[in-house]
Each structure stands twice: as structure tokens, then as C-alpha cells.
Design a protein around this nucleic acid. Structure first.
Ligand code: NAD
Ligand code: NAD
Lengths: 230, 230
DNA sequence: CATAAATCGAGAATTATTTCTTTATATATA
DNA sequence: TATATATAAAGAAATAATTCTCGATTTATG
């Protein structure tokens, strides 16, 4: 499709739409299930039925991974799984530092599921002296002051922030000092970083807003139809 | 703007765009900070500078809450905060049941931040007998078999799922049996519910996909520019 | 009191994303 | 072998979301 230079992922100048990126893990998960159940091939129609999504959209999403399918047949499941892994960068291990060994941080450290995506938390950092020098789920917790140097020495380039919102900027600064490339920020706070650093906020309040507004709206509508008096 | 029937939130037939809903908490948070710092008014220009967003977009977002501003002046901060709260339904307390008192579930139970949004976890449920009859962060943990009845009796209509992916559907079924209206699903699994039930998935893999793909892409581009040979 | 500057509000234009349409191709079946 | 059918692929159309433009309004200032 491009000049065929031996790479199968097309290096588009424009990035891939974020909605597409957010759907790929959904396909990935389903595909693994299908593979485990013994299937070898899959069509967009089938994925769409399963996930309640439009088959054309799925086809376009799959296209960005560089996988080609065959009419009437669909895609080879293994090939597709590998392509998604490769496209998302889940085929390589990425080591990460976690800042803030509190309850959320500890839950993330104990969670094994992200190894599937190549993500491996290798150490945690905290300001609380009672948390430092401990080992949580096999990971050392060190004092934050050690973070930048250790990060450079270990060549770690991925950071996870799970400190209180008020401390998030400080945590981000340390990661930047350590040469971080990407930050997954769980604190409900906006952090300022140099432009080269990629940030994704896991802001639970945003999801909650969607849910509670829809619920509120539905209640309001049903009340106005049901007709309780003012 | 509508027939003025005493309510300030316009009941549009079409729902509000989800991107708008996801931005409102960002404004809300900033507005509270500004209020605490003594300000009384705010303009979209200021919010936009602070949050690095387009002022027009902010203006359109604010419009859905029914707040009107004044040219040259902007909006009254208090009024705006109240309008967002009202619009999202964060001005009323909503009681919730949590299913799956594991590490993530416990973190959520211990987290006080959601009371700001009116969300209050009132009880947790688990299958593990060693977790039942315990109290976590002041909340009773009961056996899941008790969930549907208790939910109806207590008139709880909000559910949070933090069980392993394989059990998510089962958890959802119990919530539906209890008459749930809205579910916040943290398990990386698609759940099937009746159409009347609102579901929001907090799928960490989707966010991670965005982050790791961008990081992978950036690395690939810098490598091809830097020019390491094959 | 007139003028300038900032900002809202409404609508137009642009851009992004999804959905529809058509065509070509591979497989199965008669 | 011919025909029917499911499906990928490509592109067009429709829809959704963002960004731009401009007129109106309010406040501050000379
Ligand atoms: N726990 C949840 O369920 C939940 C839900 C939504 C959002 N969050 C957000 O996640 C973050 C963590 O929440 P939590 O419940 O784990 O809080 P927590 O208080 O349990 O943990 C925070 C940890 O960060 C450490 N810390 C504080 N300042 C630090 C600094 N400057 N550098 C390094 N470490 C520092 C603290 O010592 C503590 O161990 C918060 O921003 C919170 O708003 C948590
Ligand atoms: N822990 C994390 O950081 C993290 C991160 C991303 C996603 N998740 C997801 O969140 C969910 C919970 O993760 P976790 O780490 O807390 O797991 P966990 O194993 O610590 O907790 C799960 C809890 O659910 C209970 N449970 C199992 N089946 C149940 C059922 N049918 N009904 C009621 N309770 C049941 C278990 O007894 C356990 O207490 C999982 O789906 C996981 O994939 C967790």
C-alpha cells in the first residue's frame, strides 16, 4: 500500500483516530477468546454482532493495523491478534515506575492483567517514609527523591501517577526529570509536561459524569412522563 | 429559552454529546479551585487558558447546563458550579452497591472523593466467604446472594462492578435483578443488560491502548528519523 | 458621554468520525 | 463449470464535533 519497505504497519502522517485506538482492545479481547475456543478465522460481521458495533467501522479499525482479510472468509485470528499487538506496542515489554503507593497504586501493582499488554511495573515511589523500603506485590517501594536518577539508570520511560491530586504535578515533574516518555495519570488533576511527553488521564470523574448525567436525565424524563405534580 | 416552566436545564430531545459530558468535570474542578482562591467570576477565555481548550468549545459546553453569562464579564462562578452539579446530577446523593470487594473494590470503598459527586457506596458484596461479614472502610461486605433483595429493599439503583472479568456478567445479572438503573463497570468485559440500564465501562485497557500506541508510534518515528540501520 | 476592549451567543465553516454504497473476490453449491 | 452468497475494500455520503466569524452587549477609560 505504501512503498513496500518491509514494514506492514503503515506510517501515516496523521495519527490514528482515538476512538479507533480505544476500540482495538475490545477486538483484541474477543479475538483471544475466540482463538481459545478453537476458531481460526473471524469476520467483521461476527465481531460486530458480538460487540454490537458496525462491521464497517470494525473493518476500518482493523485496516489501521495493516491486516488484510479475504472476501467471504474474513481474517486469520492469529494474524489479527498479532497485528493489533504490534500496532499498539503490546508485543514489547515496557517497564514502568509507579508514583504513589497508596490504595489505588497498590491495587495496580497487584494487578497482573497488564502484562498482557507488555506493561510491567518494576518499582514504586512514595514520600511516606513508612511505605518506603517495603516490598508490595514483589515491587520495591522507594523514596520519591530516588526516582529521577533511578529512572535514567534503569532506562525506564513509562510513568504511572497515583498520588493525591495536589501532588500530581510534583510527581509529574520527577518523572520528567527522569526522562519519562509517557505518563498514565490517575489523579484528577491536569499536569503540565513538556510537549514531547505523552499523557493520558484516567479521570474517573469524567466517566462518572457521563453515567450520572444519563441517569439524571432518564429519571427526569420518566418523572415528567409519569407526571408527578410540581 | 424553552417554554419557561420553572426549570433551567433545557430538556433537549437528543442527549448531550459525550465529549461535552466528559469535559464538564474538568471545568467543575477548576471552578471550585478558583472559587476557593476568592474569585467570583470567570470567563471562557480564562478557563481555556488554564485547561488548554478552545474558549468557544467551553462556551458551548457551558450552554448545555443552562447557565448564561454576560459579555465582557463572563459567568458567576458559584452559579456555574451549581449549574454543572445540577446538570450532572451531582447535587443529589446517589447510593451505590459495589460488587467484588477485591483490591480495586476496596480502593474505591476507601476513596472519599466521590461524595463530591453525590456518590456514596453503601455496601459491598462478594462471593468469597472470608470477605463476607467484614466491614471495609465502614461498609458492610455481604454475600452476593443477598444483593437483589437488599437492593430492592434499600431502593439502591446504582451498581459498581469490580469482580474479575469472567464474573462480570453474573454480577450484572444480580444488579439487574435488584432493579439497577446504572452500572459502572470496571471489569474488562462486555456485559449484557436490558436496554433500560445505563452502563459505562471503565476499561483501563482502552486508555492504555491510546497511550502505548502513541508511545510506540513516537518511538518508531524517531527511530526512522534518527536512522538506525535495519 | 464617547470610545475601546473583552466576551458572550449564534450561526457558519471546517474537520473528524461513522455509516452507507458499490465493486471485486473467494468459497460453497448445484 | 456456472451461480449464489458472504465479505473485504474503497470511496461517497451523512452525521457529529470542533473551530472560526461576526454581531451584540457590557464594562472600563479617557
Ligand atoms: N482510590 C480510588 O479508588 C481512587 C479513585 C479515583 C481516583 N483516585 C485518585 O488516585 C490517586 C490515589 O488515590 P488513593 O486512594 O490511592 O490515595 P492514597 O492516599 O491511598 O495514596 C496516595 C499515596 O501517594 C503518596 N504520596 C503523596 N504525595 C506524594 C508525592 N509527592 N510523591 C510520591 N508519593 C506521594 C501517599 O503517601 C500515598 O501513599 C488520587 O489522586 C485519587 O484522587 C483514586
Ligand atoms: N486491580 C487493578 O488495579 C485493576 C486494574 C484494571 C482492571 N481491574 C479489573 O477490576 C476487577 C477487579 O480487580 P481486582 O484486582 O480488585 O481483583 P480481585 O481479585 O482483587 O478482586 C475481585 C473480587 O471479586 C470477588 N468475586 C469473584 N467473583 C465474584 C462474583 N461472582 N460475585 C461477587 N464477587 C465476586 C472476589 O472474591 C474478589 O474479592 C477485575 O475485573 C480487573 O480486571 C483491576
Amino acid at each position: 500500500m505504501n512503498e513496500s519497505k518491509g514494514r506492514s504497519i503503515p506510517e501515516t502522517v496523521k495519527g490514528v483516530p482515538e476512538p479507533t485506538l480505544r476500540r482495538l482492545p475490545l477486538y483484541y479481547r474477543l479475538l483471544k477468546q475466540l482463538r481459545d475456543s478453537g476458531r481460526a478465522g473471524v469476520s467483521c460481521t461476527m465481531i460486530g454482532t458480538e460487540l454490537k458495533l458496525d462491521p464497517t467501522q470494525i473493518r476500518k479499525d482493523i485496516e489501521v493495523t495493516g491486516t488484510v482479510g479475504r472476501p467471504k472468509v474474513g481474517y486469520d485470528i492469529n494474524e489479527l491478534i498479532c497485528a493489533i499487538e504490534r500496532f499498539l506496542g503490546w508485543d514489547n515489554t515496557v517497564e514502568a515506575f509507579l508514583v504513589g503507593a497508596g490504595s489505588l497504586g497498590e491495587a495496580l501493582m497487584g494487578y497482573g492483567g497488564f502484562t498482557e499488554c507488555g506493561l510491567q511495573i518494576v518499582a514504586a515511589f512514595d514520600v511516606d517514609p513508612t511505605k518506603c523500603h517495603r516490598v508490595m506485590h514483589g515491587k520495591h517501594v522507594r523514596h520519591v527523591s530516588k526516582l529521577p536518577n533511578l529512572m535514567r539508570r534503569m532506562k525506564v520511560r513509562f510513568g504511572i501517577i497515583t498520588v493525591p491530586a495536589a501532588e500530581a504535578q510534583q510527581a509529574a515533574n520527577l518523572l520528567v526529570e527522569g526522562g519519562v516518555l509517557a505518563i498514565w495519570n490517575f489523579a484528577p488533576a491536569k499536569i503540565q509536561v513538556p510537549e514531547r511527553v505523552i499523557v493520558t488521564n484516567e479521570d474517573l470523574y469524567c466517566s462518572l459524569a457521563v453515567l450520572s448525567q444519563k441517569m439524571t436525565r432518564k429519571l427526569a424524563l420518566s418523572r415528567s412522563k409519569g407526571g408527578s405534580k410540581p
